[in-house]
Amino acid sequence: MALNTPQITPTKKITVRAIGEELPRGDYQRCPQCDMLFSLPEINSHQSAYCPRCQAKIRDGRDWSLTRLAAMAFTMLLLMPFAWGEPLLHIWLLGIRIDANVMQGIWQMTKQGDAITGSMVFFCVIGAPLILVTSIAYLWFGNRLGMNLRPVLLMLERLKEWVMLDIYLVGIGVASIKVQDYAHIQAGVGLFSFVALVILTTVTLSHLNVEELWERFYPQRPATRRDEKLRVCLGCHFTGYPDQRGRCPRCHIPLRLRRRHSLQKCWAALLASIVLLLPANLLPISIIYLNGGRQEDTILSGIMSLASSNIAVAGIVFIASILVPFTKVIVMFTLLLSIHFKCQQGLRTRILLLRMVTWIGRWSMLDLFVISLTMSLINRDQILAFTMGPAAFYFGAAVILTILAVEWLDSRLLWDAHESGNARFDD
């Protein structure tokens, strides 16, 4: 018995066209964080690309023209004298008006014999932002004059995390709450300039795509075929072959399989920071003279006294001054041990922890910024005066060393310790 099946006739004509040209192939790229070699397709503007294995951002879609970056830099340069030299806060102490600005706080630190601690604050609040705007201006002028731009481009990517104007702005709020127990506070004209400078700096850093600047100024022929001998440069993120001198053909720094002496430098910085954190938390970090009496505060006791007036601000200072430094030390110690013992479990967790400490590390400088600003506000000789204690130097040095330890660690070593050939990683 035959089955009668109805015929289905399409209502619209289906047209099949042959592909007349070869589909576009992607360029081969190595991930600078996990060293995976993959094919990167062509990316349009405002599109980002991520590593298929570790999800690290390979290409950032946010990109401004150099002219727009230069305009932002010149605007920031105009704001800087007002943000640093004009009063941020006014207080009335014992019937006398006192003005506080950024430069005055750094000068008070240096004047009291601790120039190293003052230079830490100076670099993060004044030096690094000033280098940022002058570097962008150098790129703008240098591109037109045919100057060598490689050193500036190499420095810009590392400079971003040292620009800490946003953290200093939080420190202004913390210092205001600490001082309000002794005097009446009012915002100064410099505060508005400083807030504007923070906003412009944040926007500029978020749109400063150094890798795209490398592509514009020093374009290189990408690798179009897969080759395990391809290496990625950690300076400019170019994937290719080393030249005859073993250097990256684009930025001219040595092109090595792994960062040289990464573990040794990381261990040295980490152990030194552990040693410095002990006096930083045991010795007094601030000293207040009130009517001839002397009151010393460690980091913890200062947080407890701050909690009596504002528990939320005390929580912020606790996280930045105690929780973050010790968390960074514990995480980095764990990561280094996992590399030495070739741990194969929990790779995803370790990668996330490394990215976390990379982002939060700079916030530990908050305590030094609060001390710097408070020193310029309260300084009335023996009637009422505020000065920093010996722990300030140890704390600042420990924070900087932990930042350097994270920067010096080559994250690809975590993958080397893991089993080879993993296309995915999980716990």
Score class of each variant (00 low, 15 high):
Ala2Val: 05
Leu3Tyr: 05
Leu3Met: 06
Leu3Pro: 01
Thr5Gln: 05
Pro6Lys: 08
Pro6Asp: 08
Gln7Pro: 08
Pro10Leu: 07
Thr11Cys: 07
Lys12His: 07
Lys13Thr: 04
Val16His: 08
Gly26Ile: 13
Gly26Asp: 06
Gln29Ser: 08
Arg30Pro: 04
Arg30Gln: 08
Asp35Met: 03
Met36Arg: 01
Leu37Pro: 08
Leu40Arg: 12
Glu42Pro: 05
Ala49Trp: 10
Pro52Trp: 05
Pro52His: 02
Arg53Gln: 10
Cys54Ser: 00
Ala56Asp: 07
Ala56Leu: 08
Ile58Met: 05
Arg59Met: 04
Asp60Tyr: 06
Asp60His: 06
Ser65His: 05
Ser65Phe: 04
Met76Leu: 09
Met80Glu: 04
Met80Ser: 09
Phe82Cys: 05
Glu86Val: 06
His90Val: 04
Gly95Cys: 04
Val102Trp: 04
Val102Ile: 06
Gly105Asp: 01
Ile106Trp: 01
Trp107Val: 03
Trp107Gly: 14
Met109His: 02
Met109Gly: 06
Thr110Ala: 08
Thr110Pro: 08
Thr117Trp: 01
Gly118His: 04
Ser119Lys: 01
Ser119Ile: 01
Met120Leu: 03
Met120Ile: 06
Val121Arg: 00
Phe123Thr: 02
Cys124His: 02
Cys124Met: 10
Pro129Asp: 11
Pro129His: 05
Leu132Trp: 14
Val133Tyr: 04
Thr134Val: 11
Phe141Trp: 03
Asn143Phe: 15
Arg144Ser: 13
Met147Asn: 03
Leu149Ala: 13
Leu149Glu: 04
Arg150Gly: 07
Leu154Trp: 01
Leu154Pro: 03
Leu159Thr: 05
Lys160Gly: 09
Glu161Leu: 12
Glu161Pro: 15
Glu161Cys: 13
Met164Ala: 03
Asp166Pro: 15
Asp166His: 15
Tyr168Thr: 05
Val170Ala: 15
Ile172Met: 12
Gly173Leu: 11
Val174Ile: 14
Ser176Gln: 08
Ile177Thr: 04
Lys178Val: 00
Tyr182Gly: 04
Ala183Pro: 00
Ala183Val: 03
His184Ser: 05
Ile185Trp: 03
Gln186Ser: 09
Gly190Asp: 02
Phe194Gln: 09
Val195Ile: 14
Ala196Lys: 03
Ile199Val: 10
Ile199Leu: 12
Leu200Ser: 10
Val203Lys: 08
Leu205Pro: 07
His207Ile: 15
Leu208Phe: 09
Leu208His: 11
Asn209Ala: 10
Val210Ala: 14
Leu213Pro: 08
Trp214Gln: 11
Trp214Asp: 01
Tyr218Ala: 10
Pro219Ala: 14
Pro219Phe: 13
Pro219His: 14
Arg221Pro: 13
Arg221Lys: 13
Glu228Asp: 13
Lys229Gly: 12
Arg231Cys: 09
Cys233Tyr: 01
Phe238Gln: 11
Phe238Trp: 13
Thr239Ala: 12
Gly240Arg: 11
Pro242Ile: 12
Pro242Tyr: 14
Gln244Thr: 14
Arg245Pro: 11
Gly246Ile: 10
Arg247Gly: 13
Cys251Pro: 00
Leu257Ala: 13
Arg258Asp: 07
Ala268Asp: 06
Leu270Thr: 12
Leu271Trp: 12
Ile274Gly: 15
Leu277Pro: 02
Leu277Cys: 11
Leu282Ala: 13
Ile285Tyr: 00
Ser286Arg: 00
Ile288Glu: 00
Leu290Tyr: 02
Gly293Trp: 07
Arg294Phe: 03
Thr298Ser: 11
Ser305His: 12
Leu306Ala: 00
Ala307Arg: 14
Asn310Tyr: 03
Ile311Met: 14
Ile311Asn: 15
Ile311Phe: 14
Ala312Val: 13
Ala314Asp: 00
Gly315Lys: 07
Ile316Asn: 05
Ile316Trp: 06
Ser321Thr: 08
Ser321Asn: 01
Pro325Gly: 07
Thr327Ser: 15
Lys328Glu: 00
Val331Gly: 14
Met332Ile: 11
Thr334Glu: 11
Leu336Ala: 10
Leu337Ile: 12
Gln345Pro: 11
Leu347Glu: 12
Arg348Thr: 12
Leu353Tyr: 10
Met356Phe: 11
Val357Cys: 06
Val357Asn: 12
Thr358Asp: 11
Thr358Ala: 14
Ile360Cys: 08
Ile360Arg: 00
Trp363Gln: 03
Trp363Val: 02
Leu366Val: 09
Leu366Ser: 15
Leu368Phe: 02
Val370Asn: 00
Val370Glu: 01
Val370Ile: 05
Ser372Val: 06
Ser372Trp: 06
Thr374Val: 11
Thr374Asn: 06
Ser376His: 03
Leu377Thr: 09
Asn379Tyr: 02
Ile383Arg: 02
Ala385Pro: 00
Ala385Phe: 01
Thr387Gly: 03
Ala392Tyr: 00
Ala392Asp: 04
Phe393Ile: 08
Phe393Gly: 11
Ala398Met: 02
Leu401Thr: 12
Ile403Ala: 03
Ile403Gly: 02
Leu404Arg: 04
Leu404Glu: 14
Leu404Lys: 08
Val406Asp: 00
Trp408Thr: 10
Leu413Asp: 05
Trp415His: 12
Trp415Met: 10
Ala417Arg: 05
Ala417Phe: 12
Glu419Gly: 09
